[in-house]
Write a protein that binds this DNA or RNA. Structure first.
Lengths: 119, 119
DNA sequence: CACGTATATACGTGTAAGAGTATATCAGAA
DNA sequence: TTCTGATATACTCTTACACGTATATACGTG
């Protein structure tokens, strides 16, 4: 499995991680909320645990899984250089649109702050 | 190929992206710097281009590839909730270490306060 | 034109990973 | 102990994808 990027390439695993960001969950809770078969959940949790994305504690027959920050921070670190790159790009684009006096995609961006867009 | 996460799961593609963050490069330059066979480079560039990670312009026989920000921003956006999560965690850890009177990662603050509390 | 350089694509192959099903393990209740 | 609920693992099957090799396309130069 190797890298953290391969781990989060799997959609179900990303779903599980997103679910755990709010609070810890048991396997059954994950299973029900994400509507995926229990072995699937367990197998993905195994992968996530081996890679350090989650940890678990035992509560009677249940296992409670919770998030661990390090691996995703690694992804975040990898993104750092690109973040610098695209903020420069956004600035350039804004200056360009400014000179053009046009706002084709954004409708009069209110004020300051980073203009984050989502697809 | 679907998602941006699957695209960046491939180590060679990440290497190419990292290379392009500094400036645009031709296929041959990428090939030489990363020491990978030319068809490999071209194929990965094809994937990256189809996914919107890069764009290319023609310069005689060469094609110059450069980075496009949007897909990686998508990754960055997905990371946002987790960032909030782990910054809370770092704070908790720091408070905990504070109570323990230890600073394993930061070199400041010599051993002061013997508040040996356990959780 | 022919030739060399630069890049793209086609084809065949191996391998790994996810899905589904069945079963094993383990804890608690009766 | 036996039964039930909760979770983990084993096994098979299928598919996707990365790779290597070969070839095609395109451009520039002699």
């Amino acid at each position: 499995m190797e890298s953290v990027f391969e781990i989060i390439a799997e959609p179900n695993r990303r779903a599980i991680l997103s679910l755990l960001v709010s609070s810890e969950q048991s396997v059954g809770e994950i299973e029900r909320q994400l509507r995926m078969p229990q072995p699937t959940v367990s197998k993905h949790l195994r992968v996530l645990r081996d890679a350090g994305f989650v940890e678990s504690t035992v509560d009677a027959q249940r296992r409670l899984y919770r998030l661990k920050p390090e691996p995703l921070q690694e992804v975040d670190d990898w993104l750092a250089p690109f973040r610098r790159f695209w903020s420069a790009h956004v600035d350039a684009l804004e200056r360009h649109l400014e000179r053009m006096g046009q706002h084709p995609t954004t409708k009069s961006t209110p004020a300051k702050g980073k203009t984050r867009r989502r697809k």
